[in-house]
Amino acid sequence: MTYEIVALYAVTFCLVVGSIFTLVGAIGLLKFNDGMTRLHAPTKVGTVGVGALLLASIIYNGVFGEGAVQELLIMGFLFVTAPISAHFIAKVNMHRGTCDTPPELPEDEQWATFDLPASDQELTKPLLSES
C-alpha cells in the first residue's frame, strides 16, 4: 500500500519536472536572439523533458501495469539521436553564417564542416551566397 503511494508521488514529481523543463526549453526557443543560443535550450527538452515524462510512464506501468520496455526503447533512441541532430543544426548555422565566425585554425587548416570536396562546393555555393 505505502509502496504504491510512494510510486504515485514519484510519478507526480517526474511529470512536474518534465513539464518544467519542456516549458523552459520552449521559452528559450522563443526568447533567445541568436541561432546558436537558440540551439541550446530545446536540446534540454529532448533529454530531460521527455526523459522525465517517460520515466513517469515507466514507474506507473512498472508498479500498476506489466513492465515497460517500449519506454526504455524510446528513451535510448532519443538520448542517442538528440546530440546528432543538434550537431547537424549547428553545422547548418555555421554554413548559413547565422552565428559568430569561428576562429581561424593554424597552418592553413579548415574547420571540418567547411572542408568539402570540390564537387560539393559547387553544390553549396548558391546557398552560401544567398544568406
Binding site: 518534465g18 519542456t22 526549453g25 520552449a26 526557443l29 541561432g35 537558440r38 540551439l39 530545446p42 527538452v45 529532448g46 523533458g49 521527455v50 515524462l53 517517460l54 513517469a56 510512464s57 506507473y60 519506454e71 524510446i74 532519443l78 538528440a82 541532430s85 543544426i89 547548418v92 548555422n93 548559413r96 547565422t98 544568406s131
Partner: peptide, 26 residues
C-alpha cells in the same frame, strides 16, 4: 529568421509530440 531556426523548431515539435503521446498513454 533563418533555416536553422525552422529546422530546430520542427525538431522540438516532434519531441513535444512524443511527450504528448506518452502523456496520452499514461
Amino acid at each position: 529568421p533563418g533555416t536553422a531556426d525552422r529546422i530546430l523548431a520542427l525538431d522540438t515539435m516532434v519531441i513535444n509530440a512524443i511527450g504528448l503521446i506518452v502523456l496520452m498513454g499514461l
